[in-house]
Design a protein around this nucleic acid. Structure first.
Lengths: 334, 334
DNA sequence: AGGGTTATTGGAAGCGCTCCCGGGCCCTAC
DNA sequence: GTAGGGCCCGGGAGCGCTTCCAATAACCCT
């Protein structure tokens, strides 16, 4: 292995022939240092390969230099959804511009919850991004209990957090439904995700909005999980209960993919017999057959905006909640 | 917001009427404390809601209480592969048993590389897990330069790191090829992933092994990326160059999914005209049509074992490199 | 030339914790 | 009766950095 110990600021100062305070000022690019000392210190830093110890710095400044991204979900497998990967990528893109590190906390289990609690109480991070909260999620309340900035990704069901970024779920879903109506479909069903989720409930509401305006019957509804399996099962139930359906608004691309499979299994053609539109516009939407007409939400951007908002919060600013627009992407399934 | 400041150990000690040292001993469950003081401190801890400050503790003990998982890849989009999600899930499962936090570093860009460097030099973590190294990846050399445990997930191309965990890529691929041979196929092609990757090269080698034993022509080969698009393109080239192929060994499930798509586009049936076997056995393998016969590698376990190995390294032990077994999963495509 | 700023500078006091050490204490063995 | 050996216990010295402060030094204006 390499060098046994990193040089300390004292050693740098000694080598440069200045006081530790002066060296510190140079490192932090602060004022009140002569150019001569500045150069001397800079040289010593290079020669010694000095890198400031973040722990010591954190202790002195009371700033950790890290933020946490906490993903809360009851089912660990859900994390496999590329949706989360995109979120992480977005967050990371924004964080890369800074010196902040990313702490990942999977808060599904009670284990994970306790861990997040600890992180908050012990100030192990300068801020928190919290995602995917179910209605009863105890994490939602955590935000207020500690003196640490928290931004939500998506809204919890029965609370309006002070800071959040979300996609326009309701508007997007309404768009999708209107598109189906415009296509001449009249027996339009909806397969929602979990209704104890704001995304699930809001997307359902968007469907109701459009159906109401068009004066159509909005009662053909099935609930399921945000998964392919959930979608397939829901579609099968739908077909049994309402054989007349000629279109379905799916709560997510995964759900849509599942319905496609179930539809094919029951001998219905898409979009001939039944038109399907999804929600998310992840890569999955391109890999179905036929390719999915779907509502695009800027997932990567969602991650980025969460990070941005957290950064501005940490900087002491007062950002406003943000709702990102969604739009319909026309492909083959509707 | 909540309480402005967390109580310190001194305050706990004062309230319990003991010295700070004694309080510390109780917190760390060390010996040489009377039961009476133990109780007094415990009570004070609860009353004050004390949680030790990890930063201060880290500074004193020289142990950060965090490890990093670094994912290196040239293309950020690759991170979307559920493979990584599974790795993370596995790592997290093991870490949840400890007090260690997970630092996620996406080291694709030079930005990310520099960041990882900094983390290593400044000892921002107690250990590192490094994944997905291409042949020329500068990260591979990093391990030796710093006095910090590093375990590799998969092997870099031209180096045998001291500690790594990998799947039996060569053996698995050989199994897949043998299966195809057993099926009576004789014009078996291979679509590899990037050959500057150990996984890519090893899986190709497994194919060569089996073909050599059977005395078959192993020259039908195309290279691509570990993606669906790469697989589709490679399959198309394959079909043009060797129209007689009756089977293909794919370097991954994504590649296999791509070939399936290309095969269908060219009017070949699967497994009738061409049998296909994948590698990974992720959820994707279930969502293709037909479902994929594929080599299962324990991705979640890979993550878990990486974490385990790192933990044991941190504990001062000397674990051995680990190669996890792979096995063939029979489904419809071969 | 003199009073008042404004730049530099190093000393020293923390940040909140761990842990070494030496001093009591009590108990046992001779 | 006393010399050892545990056990407790608190004092205090760090861990490596930032930052306040008082002390100089350099500079401006009238």
């Amino acid at each position: 292995m390499g060098p046994k110990r990193q040089p300390t600021l004292d050693e740098v100062a000694a080598r440069a022939g200045v006081s530790r305070s002066a060296a510190s000022r140079v490192i932090n690019n602060a004022r009140h240092v002569s150019q001569a000392k500045r150069d001397a210190v800079a040289r010593a830093v290079v020669e010694l390969g000095f890198v400031p110890n973040p722990t010591a710095r954190a202790l002195a400044t009371q700033q950790v230099g890290a933020v946490v991204l906490a993903l809360s979900h009851h089912d660990p497998a859900l994390f496999t959804d590329p949706f989360f990967a995109q979120i992480i990528l977005g967050v990371n893109a924004e964080l890369e511009k800074t010196e902040l590190e990313l702490l990942l906390v999977l808060a599904n289990s009670t284990q994970g919850q306790a861990r997040l609690q600890r992180i908050l109480k012990s100030r192990r991070a300068d801020g928190v991004m919290l995602m995917a909260l179910h209605g009863d999620d105890p994490l939602a309340a955590l935000a207020d209990q500690h003196d640490i900035p928290v931004v939500f990704g998506g809204r919890p069901l029965h609370a309006e957090p002070r800071w959040y970024v979300d996609a326009d779920n309701r508007g997007g879903s309404r768009l999708a439904t209107e598109h189906l109506i415009g296509l001449g479909r009249r027996h339009i069903a909806v397969i929602t995700g979990q209704m104890d989720t704001d995304a699930g409930a809001s997307r359902h509401r968007g469907y109701l909005d459009a159906m109401a305006v068009a004066g159509l019957d909005p009662s053909r509804v099935e609930h399921g999980e945000f998964t392919e399996a959930g979608g397939a099962a829901a579609m099968t139930r739908l077909l049994a209960a309402y054989p007349e359906v000629d279109a379905v608004v799916a709560g997510s691309d995964a759900i849509a993919a599942g319905s496609l499979r179930a539809l094919k299994a029951h001998g219905r053609t898409v979009p001939g017999d039944v038109a399907v539109v999804g929600f998310d516009d992840l890569l999955t939407a391109l890999h179905t057959d036929p390719q999915l007409t779907t509502v695009h939400q800027p997932v990567h951007g969602l991650g980025r905006e969460m990070a941005k908002m957290l950064l501005s919060l940490i900087a002491g600013e007062e950002p406003h909640p943000l709702i990102l627009p969604t739009r319909l992407v026309h492909r083959a399934s509707a």
